[in-house]
């Protein structure tokens, strides 16, 4: 079951980050989307902006991969929020 193994990203985390406006949430999603995932077979992220909410959906092959991936995305989100806060 080679295919089955590749698809089994069973470790899941959903984050919802509220922004002040829907434009800000859209900007955050646009900034985050382009960067490639180093090991797509082990880790996947989806970004969605709904109104003023940025929803991030993580899937990982185990909890370690999930933790590392989530923390790197949160670091980026922190930079985005600080930029919006200080420079908008």
């Amino acid at each position: 079951m080679k295919n089955g193994r590749e698809m089994s990203l069973d470790y899941v985390l959903n984050l919802e980050i509220p922004f002040t406006t829907s434009r800000q949430a859209q900007i955050a999603a646009k900034v985050l989307v382009p960067d490639p995932i180093l090991k797509p077979q082990d880790f996947q992220v989806e970004y969605l902006s709904q109104d003023n909410i940025l929803a991030v959906h993580f899937r990982g092959i185990d909890d370690r991969v999930l933790r590392v991936g989530v923390s790197s995305v949160i670091d980026s989100i922190k930079t985005i929020i600080e930029t919006i806060d200080e420079l908008d």
């Binding site: 900007i27 646009k30 900034v31 980026s76 930079t79 985005i80 930029t83 919006i84 420079l87």
Partner: peptide
């Protein structure tokens, strides 16, 4: 490099 480009993209979209 990545940490700086995140700020660059955000500024570009904001402004």
């Amino acid at each position: 490099l990545h940490s700086v480009v995140i700020a660059a993209r955000t500024c570009s979209l904001l402004w």
